[in-house]
């Protein structure tokens, strides 16, 4: 799951000054980038397991089309990580299979 990232920083890229948590592990993010980008910079591994076969998937299209980047963000399941900007302190979990129903209101 924690394969090396498949990306490197471009020349002059801003420092990764934001700190997110992914399944309890710190992940650094650059202001203005999406959660999916931060996850891809962190690791080349899967960020979810599909509900059908449990296959590992990672962010794919980066533009909101494919829904392969689904993760749980701050308790909200099945969020498209490529459509959400990274923010300090975000708590992210890999989406393992189908989501659960919400807590009793």
């Amino acid at each position: 799951m924690n394969a090396a990232s498949r990306f490197r920083d471009a020349p002059g890229a801003a420092p990764r000054s934001l700190r997110l948590m992914l399944d309890g592990v710190p992940v650094l993010a650059r202001p203005g980038e999406s959660v999916a980008a931060a996850l891809l910079a962190h690791s080349g591994g899967a960020t979810r397991q599909t509900p059908v076969t449990g296959a590992g998937r990672a962010p794919y299209c980066m533009m909101g089309v494919c829904f392969d980047c689904l993760v749980t963000i701050d308790g909200h399941p099945n969020v498209q990580a490529c459509m959400v900007s990274a923010r300090e302190g975000m708590v992210i979990q890999r989406q393992i299979g189908a989501r659960r129903l919400g807590d009793q209101p």
């Binding site: 920083d9 471009a10 203005g32 960020t47 590992g56 998937r57 533009m63």
Partner: peptide, 18 residues
């Protein structure tokens, strides 16, 4: 994981400096 469209990589270049 490890396969992406080229356009997706370009988005990462533009938005994230990756």
């Amino acid at each position: 994981p490890g396969l992406m469209p080229a356009g997706a990589a370009q988005i990462l270049m533009k938005q994230s400096g990756m």
